[in-house]
Write a protein that binds this DNA or RNA. Structure first.
Length: 221
DNA sequence: GACCAGGCACATC
DNA sequence: GATGTGCATGGT
């Protein structure tokens, strides 16, 4: 097994060279990041865009507006992104948490240290590890590595992760082998998603795998 | 008409 | 603790 520090960095360099900066998260405000993070659970981003556009069109994209909006009406607005009934409830759960504990202010919520903040987010019904970490990285600008199905799939195929690796294990694999840097983590996760959608899915042996086999670490190994 | 998409909570064993 | 299931639309 090649040095994981070198491999994780090399992977990043290959992806960045292939696709360039991804400019994530695609949102205008931190609050929009959070809404998008909940709506994109097991859902294509295209559908989430439609749902968010509907909410914006009704001028409801703020904690105060969504707090007052009836859950069933909210569900209809976000219908295009699927699971709309459960996602309407999940959005409500987050907003009620924010209003009750932080007077509806993200700035107040984000004044917490990263680990406290993560625990608080995870305590909200409907926010699991990936959603929490997406909020931490892309809305609160914390150096937390976001793991998703793509990340596991790609790095398992390359033999860098064991098939059974759970969320925490995969996250630590990256966090321990990369410099703790918000910009790097931001770009890395975005590049993995880009790669998975563009190439990895369409070929039996994805592009990055091929490049890896040609690289010096695999030749030595 | 299958199959998948930037997960999560809950039931059951 | 591991595994199975419901949630649902829109694109390929």
């Amino acid at each position: 097994m090649p040095d994981p520090k070198k491999i994780t960095k090399l992977c990043y360099n290959i992806l960045y060279k292939l696709y360039g900066p991804q400019k994530w998260w695609p949102a205008e405000t931190p609050f929009e990041v959070i809404v998008g993070a909940i709506l994109t659970q097991n859902t294509s981003w295209k559908n989430v865009e439609k749902a968010i556009a509907n909410v914006k069109a009704k001028n409801k994209l703020s904690p105060a507006h969504l707090y007052r909006l009836d859950t069933n009406r909210l569900a209809l607005l976000i219908k295009p992104c699927g699971y709309y009934n459960i996602k309407a409830k999940r959005l409500k759960h987050f907003i009620e948490f924010l209003i009750k504990n932080y007077k509806g202010s993200l700035k107040n919520l984000f004044s917490n240290p990263t680990q406290i903040l993560r625990k608080q987010l995870l305590s909200i019904n409907g926010i699991g590890p990936e959603t929490a970490d997406s909020i931490l990285l892309y809305a609160a600008q914390r150096p937390v590595f976001v793991v998703d199905a793509y990340t596991k799939r790609i790095f398992q195929r390359q033999g860098l992760l064991t098939p059974g690796a759970d969320y925490e294990y995969v996250q630590k694999f990256f966090e321990l082998n990369l410099p703790k840097n918000v910009k790097l983590f931001n770009e890395y996760h975005a590049l993995i998603v880009k790669h998975a959608k563009d190439v990895c899915k369409k070929t039996p042996l994805c592009y990055i795998c091929v490049l890896h086999k040609e690289c010096e670490f695999f030749k030595k190994g």
